[in-house]
Design a protein around this nucleic acid. Structure first.
Length: 358
RNA sequence: GCACCGGUCGCCAAGUGGCUAAGGCACGAGCCUGCAAAGCUCGUAUCGCCGGUUCGACUCCGGCCCGGUGCU
């Protein structure tokens, strides 16, 4: 029977880390982080990675896997995370994906379409074009290359227009045609999705407090240190030999950089970082709400009551994975105390065929 | 006490005697197929209170209340 893959998703500061550690301990699991900034090394305080102690206690994957100056993408994430999950599975342990980055999670579970990787040169040209003329120009270009894609992408959405044009040009094929070929989903697992959605006001209060804590524990000093080796995407200079680190533009670091440039007072920097995180949390929630088969919990991940409930759910899910036919047979053999006996005969055609490629 | 300035959505803020009172932020809803902690879309007020002038007032007049500034 297919092994279980546990997925914990929720907005920033909802307690995913606490819950995942608890579950990993209880079920003998390893954690696969799904966070587009935690993949970068050297950036610590602002990324809210699990602590060193936590990472010693429970094995973590997909954290610190890229150099700050590296371009890391959803495709890279998907490939590496799948490898990590396969390894964990092989060790006989429970893989627990802990996600905050919706696109990465979707790339991991549902896959991406078969398309060309991004081309920095092409992007630079397109972006320049967008600056010179108007955004509407890019949309017109896409209209010519792929009218259907142009219908689906809003004329103001520059990054998506650029990717669409890039794909058409590089592949010599329409983007929508490539979409139609489908994705490459992750197979071989029974996925159990746990969603965390604490009351909005409480979540916002936690986000605010966490931002303050980040600044108090040295976010600005860390940023100053990092700035000696990398430059921020918001203050690039071509004459500067330091490589650009895109993470430097992410929430918290962005404000710390502005503070160091004297554009912001400490107080305003904190307020803006808080605001950015709150807005981000809201976007995450609308993304996750669309995710299918999520069991939602209206509490924080560190809440003991919630942890108990989730643990129960996971146990139930695992049980079902090990005794897949029990549920189907309850009606027929309810008096039978060992429903597993004889269950084999009742395998349906679909199950029999899907068992073939195991 | 007197004088002046100001009171427009949760905040900032335009505005006109008469189309359905700009915009920004927040907030809410939503999008998302390799930069995603990014980018984008949509939604939300009857203008401090009372009275008057007027065909018609948020806009004009008077009084009151509140905030700011100045003065004896």
């Amino acid at each position: 029977m297919q092994p279980v893959l546990l997925v914990i998703l929720g907005p920033t500061a909802s307690g995913k880390t606490a819950l995942s550690l608890k579950l990993a301990e209880e079920f003998g699991g390893e954690i696969v982080s799904c966070d587009s900034v935690a993949v970068y090394r050297e950036f610590e305080i602002g990324t809210a990675k699990p602590t060193k102690e936590e990472r010693q206690r429970i094995r973590h994957h997909l954290i610190d896997v890229a150099a700050p100056s590296e371009e890391f993408t959803a495709g890279d994430y998907s490939r590496m995370a799948r490898q990590a999950i396969a390894d964990i599975q092989q060790r006989g342990r429970l893989p627990i994906v802990v996600g905050g980055t919706g696109l990465y999670l979707r790339a991991l579970i549902e896959g991406l379409f078969e398309g060309p990787q991004r081309s920095e040169q092409l992007r630079i040209r397109l972006r320049r074009k967008a600056d010179q003329r108007t955004v509407a120009h890019l949309h017109r270009v896409l209209e010519r290359l792929d009218p259907e894609a142009a219908t689906r992408i809003h004329p103001n959405d520059t990054p998506k227009l650029i990717r669409a044009i890039e794909v058409c040009l590089l592949a010599g094929e329409r983007l929508t045609a490539m979409w139609d070929k489908g994705r490459d989903p992750l197979t071989g697992f029974r996925i159990c999705r746990i969603g965390l959605e604490p009351p909005r006001n409480d979540l916002y209060a936690r986000i605010n407090a966490r931002c303050v804590a980040m600044f108090e524990s040295g976010l600005v000093e860390e940023t100053r240190r990092l700035l000696t080796a990398y430059q921020s995407p918001d203050f690039v200079s071509t004459a500067d030999p330091r490589p650009v680190a895109r993470v430097m533009g992410s929430l918290g670091y962005k404000q710390a950089v502005q503070l160091l440039h004297g554009e912001l007072s400490q107080q305003i920097a904190i307020l803006e970082a808080q605001q950015g995180h709150r807005n981000y949390a809201k976007r995450q929630l609308t993304w996750f709400r669309r995710e299918s088969d999520v069991r939602w919990f209206a509490a924080f991940g560190d809440d003991p009551q919630l942890q108990r409930e989730v643990a129960e759910l996971v146990t139930e899910h695992q049980g079902r994975a090990e005794e897949p036919f029990e549920r189907m047979l309850v009606g027929d053999v309810s008096e039978d105390l060992s429903p597993r006996t004889g269950a084999q005969d009742d395998i349906s055609e679909e199950d029999a065929s899907s068992a073939d490629h195991l």
